[in-house]
């Protein structure tokens, strides 16, 4: 009987921590159901006095939300698929193949993690604008707008990245060398080893990377802000700015829209959390 006490105590502590983690989300949902008068009232009440579900309809009535969601799904989906392919292949190459300059190349990839994205934003933007033969550009990348205001411009810079390559490399390093040798004896070439042996065993790391990449792409604000110019190309994060003016923020509508914007990420995490935790543990990331 006494042995159960530590477990109960641990559960209580974890429950309190879980509540603390959940509190901002709860606050977001209850705020989305209040009137502005109630939000700005000097006396704070957690539970709304009047449950105003109409806030959701009103929030979605502002702006082209179907289009924003469509854009975000396209951009996130394409980015995640391509990044899984490129990052896992590069990670595999760095972990399992021996070739001249491998370590120097990997070190240069690691440097990429240390450079903040703000520093590379404008140069990347210029590269997208001056991409030859696209968006009215000639072979020198002049004359047009390149990939500005296009899905390609939103996706291309993020389909491979230092973090993803590093994550996959760390995972692939855990496999025994005997696995490669056995495959080679059986006559499998390097692509077959990757696609038929390593990839099927990599579900946890791919799920982890997919969640990281989905979250980062779905929540990205600054890149779509500078890359898109028309309402038609806006993503959900840019859509949320509708509720903010120079002097005022419509918190109830903003929170209603935010709740709906966060929902796909929550569902994705719930669906893939088993692999996610497994992936984090395996790669030693914290």
């Amino acid at each position: 009987m006494t042995r159960k006490w530590p477990t109960v105590l641990f559960s209580i502590v974890m429950f309190i921590i879980a509540l603390l983690m959940l509190f901002p989300f709860l606050l977001m949902v209850v705020t989305s159901l209040k009137t502005m008068g109630e939000i700005q009232s000097p006396t704070f009440t957690f539970i709304p006095k009047h449950w105003l579900f109409d806030n959701y309809a009103e929030a979605m009535g502002r702006g082209e939300w179907l289009r924003y969601f469509y854009n975000s799904f396209i951009v996130t989906g394409v980015t995640v698929v391509f990044s899984l392919v490129f990052n896992s292949m590069a990670g595999f190459a760095f972990a399992r193949l021996r070739f001249p300059g491998r370590d120097v190349l990997f070190f240069s990839v690691l440097i990429g993690i240390m450079v903040p994205p703000q520093a590379t934003m404008i140069p990347t933007f210029l590269m997208m604008k001056m991409f030859p033969f696209f968006g009215g550009n000639d072979w020198q990348g002049q004359g047009g707008f390149g990939f500005i205001n296009s899905y390609t411009g939103l996706v291309l810079p993020f389909i491979a990245g230092s973090f993803g390559i590093f994550l996959c490399r760390q995972y692939f390093l855990n496999f025994p060398r005997a696995l490669d040798e056995a495959a080679q004896i059986d006559g499998a070439n390097v692509f077959r080893v990757f696609f038929q042996i390593y990839l099927p065993l990599s579900k946890p790391i791919l799920a982890t990377l997919a969640i990281f990449k989905t979250t980062a792409t779905w929540n990205d604000y600054m890149w779509p802000l500078i890359m898109t110019n028309t309402e038609h190309m806006r993503t959900v994060q840019l859509g949320l700015t509708i509720f903010r003016s120079e002097t005022n923020v419509e918190w109830n509508l903003l929170m209603a829209a935010t709740t709906l914007v966060v929902l796909p990420l929550v569902l994705l995490f719930l669906a893939a959390q088993k692999y996610f935790v497994q992936g984090i543990v395996t790669t030693g990331l914290k």
Partner: peptide, 28 residues
Amino acid sequence: MTALCVTVLASVALTACGSNSTEQLNPK
């Protein structure tokens, strides 16, 4: 050949994304 096909398909998919979805600004 498989790897080349994947690369070509990837390029075509991205290009398609680009050309079909780019809002016309005022190029050239």
